[in-house]
Computed example of a mutant assay.
Amino acid sequence: MKIFKIVTAFTAIVLAIVLLSFSQKKEEKRKEKSVQTSSETKVAYFASGCFWCVEAIFESVYGVEEAVSGYAGGHTKNPTYETIGTGSTGHAESVAVYYNPKKVSFQTLVTVFFGSHDPTTKNGQHPDYGSQYRSIAFYENQEEKEIIENTIIKLNKEVYDGRIVTEVMRMDTFYPAEEYHQNYERLHPENPYVRSVSIPRLHKFKRKFPKLLKKEEE
């Protein structure tokens, strides 16, 4: 009987280790989403409302090789779409923008960021509201921080009369979102939200910055 109990306990421990290993590998797979880029690629990070919309906007810009939807700016590990929706993780729906600096500058990406959403709306972009939809421009070094801050100063003076509420935050950890969120606007053009919000927002951006767009063949 004693031997049976020992074997049962051992089996339970092995099963727990296997399940933990499977869970960790699944999480690593989500984090290590493959992105096809060139050797010169750099990455910039932005949050400005629903990441379906933001991803599509940046992917339309010349010099951007890929944009990945995800979560950033929070204080907990391994956030999910469900947990960030509660507002308890501190994360915002964000996008990692993979770009070729020989084709498009960080300054231009910052211009795209501010030019494609309302940076004066706190915790939201119509019709989505909550801290997970707040406006954040992330930086990874002092040069990027100064570019963002100088752009805010300029826009506050010339356009927004000091009303910009965008957070300027050092990038800590970016968590790619679940696979079904990636390229959502392109893959689901029939979705009611995409039709009424995402696509109109993309078209508005394209009309505003036609010279920044990729050519049709790209």
Rank of each mutant, 00 (worst) to 15 (best):
Y193Q: 02
L20G: 15
P101N: 13
V18M: 07
T37Y: 00
P189A: 03
K204I: 01
V95L: 07
T37M: 00
E158T: 15
V97N: 08
I13M: 13
V165D: 04
E185N: 07
V35L: 10
S196D: 09
N141Q: 10
A177N: 13
E143P: 01
Y160D: 05
N100K: 06
S60Y: 04
E40H: 13
D128S: 03
H188C: 08
F4C: 00
G63D: 13
P176Q: 11
A12E: 03
Y175D: 08
H181R: 11
R170W: 00
V18I: 14
N78G: 07
N156P: 06
K77F: 07
V14Q: 05
E185R: 14
Y71C: 02
T76H: 06
R201F: 01
F113W: 10
F113M: 10
I17H: 00
P189Y: 10
S94T: 15
G74R: 06
E190Q: 14
T86Q: 08
D118Q: 07
A9D: 07
A137G: 03
Q36M: 00
Y184E: 08
E190K: 15
T86E: 11
S69R: 09
S21G: 02
L155G: 01
E32C: 01
V168T: 11
Y98I: 03
S88I: 09
E149S: 10
L109C: 07
